[in-house]
């Protein structure tokens, strides 16, 4: 399939859904259009809501807040995870001692932490960043840990035979290997950073996309909820695209990346 026809098909899927939605919410083909419009809103209403946000300019502030929270969560969570992942991978005993605690913390649904973070960090952005960090941390941590532990033994032996000291091994072998594992989970971890930010906003905030959606829901403004979801979806797609660009740049040496161009 060529790029053009692929894009055409992707647009066609959206068109079919929107047309079906429009038909169901404005005609009697499926059922009572007023009822359907109450529960699902109409494409026109959602579009005009998004238009008002964009033209009125209020959406940019909320987008910026969500973006800021996501980026902070990603950076802080990844940095902590790389540090601790490296440390644990190089100190078997440490990893063994903390193993049950790491597993327990990872198994905990992070949403239950949100009220505590609000209590600790207030209603501002930091409680949302904290929630994002707890999500990002474990994904990156497990990947870095794995990356350091599963360095190809031949490559490692070769590096030793080439005269590398422990520090040089860290820099030339362990570090790139761990980074490659981390980058392979970049889509997931960035996605979770956004999830943390939005869920945090949804549970209590004064700004951000999650806040917008929560406000609309509070007054049964289904159109507003859908509009917020569409903006969020576009936002996530954009971020995912940016991650793909970064990944392509950083992992040129990986066969699957440069072949598939993903």
């Amino acid at each position: 399939m060529t790029r053009i026809s692929l894009l055409a098909w992707q647009v066609a899927v959206a068109a079919v859904i929107i047309v079906a939605w429009q038909v169901a919410s404005t005609t009697h083909v499926v059922g009572d259009p007023d009822k359907i419009a109450f529960f699902f809103s109409t494409p026109a209403a959602v579009a005009s809501q998004i238009w008002r946000w964009v033209v009125g300019g209020s959406i940019w502030y909320h987008l910026w807040i969500t973006l800021l929270e996501s980026m902070l969560a990603f950076v802080i969570g990844s940095a902590a995870a790389i540090l601790i992942g490296f440390w644990f991978a190089r100190r078997e005993a440490l990893a063994a001692i903390f193993d049950p605690y790491v597993k327990a913390a990872n198994a905990l649904p992070r949403v239950v932490l949100a009220p505590i973070f609000t209590l600790w960090f207030g209603l501002g952005i930091w409680s949302k960043v904290a929630l994002g960090v707890t999500l990002v941390f474990f994904i990156v941590f497990f990947n870095v840990y794995q990356g350091v532990r599963e360095v190809n033994t031949t490559v490692l032996s070769n590096a030793r035979m080439l005269g590398m000291s422990e520090r040089q091994l860290l820099r030339h072998v362990y570090w790139p290997s761990a980074l490659s594992w981390m980058f392979s989970s970049l889509h997931t971890s960035v996605g979770f950073a956004v999830v943390g930010a939005v869920v945090g906003e949804y549970l209590g905030a004064a700004a951000g996309l999650g806040y917008l959606i929560q406000q609309a829901e509070g007054v049964f403004d289904v159109g507003g909820v859908f509009a917020g979801m569409f903006v969020l979806a576009a936002f996530v797609l954009l971020i995912d695209w940016a991650v793909t660009l970064v990944e392509r740049r950083l992992l040129v040496w990986r066969p699957e990346i440069s072949k598939s161009g993903r």
């Binding site: 490559v155 070769n158 590096a159 035979m161 005269g163 072998v173 290997s177």
Partner: peptide, 17 residues
């Protein structure tokens, strides 16, 4: 480690990055 030796491995041992 034998510092005076070079070792050519059977498997791929180049650093892929």
């Amino acid at each position: 480690i034998n510092r005076q030796a070079g070792y050519l491995f059977q498997q791929d041992a180049l650093m892929p990055w």
